[in-house]
Amino acid sequence: MIAKVLVTVWMAIIIVAAFLYANAAVGFPGETSRILFFHVPQAWVATLSFLISMIGSCIYLARRNLKADNLALSAAELGLLFCLLATASGSIFAKAAWGSFWNWDPRETSIVILLMIYGAYFALRSAVGDPEKRRIFAAVYSILAFVTVPFLVFVVPRITASLHPEDTMNPARPGMDPKTLKVFLGSLLAYTGLFIWLLRLRLRLLNLEGMQEPEFGARENMDRVGEEQ
């Protein structure tokens, strides 16, 4: 409860600080650079949930633990949500800064691929009737998709030059205004907190659904002969 109130207050502080405390970065039209405090954390959460979903999938395949599959599923759902948010906020910025809503900049390409993977993941889940097969297939697909990501990192930036601002907007490099950096890191924290909050809500809800269908629970003494992994 305290943590939730903290997240609420912290996010409000970040919103105020993003507009009042931090300075607008030079080299951007008007105040558009303030998108940094919202867009980048959204993209970060989208990536984080992709990672968590993959970890949940791995645990599910190793242990056949229902909770792990619930984690993978809810992380994927939230990932899709934040992916859409990041795409929308990025698009608005792209229109203001670069003149068009969509430019096929490498990061825009990557996020579209991420969206397609999430879409495919849910399409697969809805197409498999048997609940246990559904979970196994979804987990396998999620791992396969994750394996292709490093190739994207290799391949995509080569097609077109990135329009994304690097130096002044990348906290890993020098050149970011210290005030901006503070608010940006705070915002990452706020968004991660919000993500954990949402994730736990979704997990509890899935748990409740699972209680109504008892056959999902009893899987402890499965036949494990010869399944050495």
């Binding site: 996010m11 409000a12 919103i15 105020v16 507009f19 009042l20 105040e31």
Partner: peptide, 12 residues
């Protein structure tokens, strides 16, 4: 800017 800030706060 204050308008955008207010909208953001209301949404949050």
């Amino acid at each position: 800017l204050d308008f955008v800030l207010a909208v953001n706060l209301v949404i949050w």
